[in-house]
């Protein structure tokens, strides 16, 4: 058993203090990073509760339920930021990346503490796979939201559609890595490849928005 709340406090406090000494985009990113970590903890609480209520096994929860809960939880602060602060496109993307990075960092911290960090190779794979996967998911989500805002087409169906896209991406990753062998290698490579594919339109296209 690990004490996730204590780990969160330990990591979050220095970051929280640093927020007061930062400005503009750096402050925005660190704040989003902190929110991402808190969101990760809340998502874990909800996931545990849903696992108990739905009587699913831990494996079924990880493969089928977690992608839905985690993506909804990541969407909420991004949507709140979008609606309440009406940010510029670049700020929204930065905030989303912060949420994804914070979420992935805290998840990795808890994973390392519960399963050990003996194998450097496995830790590298986990960092490059899960870490990048959460960032890709939030990046896709925010890219869709930025476009919807830009073209004044922000609608319930558009938001749910973008959320569903990030959910299915996350669900496919979880399914692939749930079994050992070739499928897990494909799963580990998927986020990095997707990040590389997303990087091209991000550089060429999103900067113009």
């Amino acid at each position: 058993m690990i004490y996730a709340e204590n780990i969160l406090i330990c990591i979050a406090v220095p970051l929280f203090v640093s927020v007061f000494f930062l400005k503009k985009s750096a402050r925005r990113f660190v704040t989003a990073f902190l929110i991402g970590m808190v969101i990760c903890l809340i998502a874990a609480y909800i996931g545990g509760f849903m696992e108990y209520v739905s009587k699913m096994t831990a494996d079924e929860t990880a493969v089928f339920l977690s992608p839905i809960i985690e993506e909804i939880m990541k969407l909420l602060p991004i949507l709140f930021y979008l609606v309440m602060f009406i940010p510029e496109s670049g700020d929204l993307m930065l905030f989303s990346v912060g949420i994804g990075a914070g979420f992935a960092t805290f998840e990795n911290c808890c994973y390392i503490l519960s399963s050990g960090a003996g194998s450097l190779l496995y830790i590298l794979i986990r960092g490059l796979a899960v870490g990048v996967m959460h960032i890709v998911c939030t990046l896709m989500l925010s890219l869709a939201l930025v476009l919807l805002k830009k073209f004044k087409a922000l609608s319930f169906s558009g938001i749910v559609g973008a959320l569903s896209l990030s959910m299915i991406f996350h669900a496919l990753y979880n399914l692939l890595v749930s079994e050992s062998g070739v499928s897990s290698y494909i799963g580990y490579a998927m986020p990095l490849l997707s990040a590389a594919v997303l990087f091209i339109p991000y550089r060429r296209f999103v900067k113009k928005l």
């Binding site: 739905s54 699913m56 079924e60 089928f64 339920l65 992608p67 839905i68 869709a144 919807l148 073209f151 087409a153 609608s155 169906s157 558009g158 749910v160 559609g161 973008a162 569903s164 896209l165 959910m167 299915i168 669900a171 496919l172 399914l175």
Partner: peptide
């Protein structure tokens, strides 16, 4: 327990509908 592939289908329909709003 949850057909996640259907989530992808929902995304397909909703994203296409959103694109059509233009």
């Amino acid at each position: 327990p949850i057909a996640a592939n259907e989530i992808g289908e929902w995304a397909f329909f909703l994203l296409l509908a959103t694109g059509l709003s233009s």
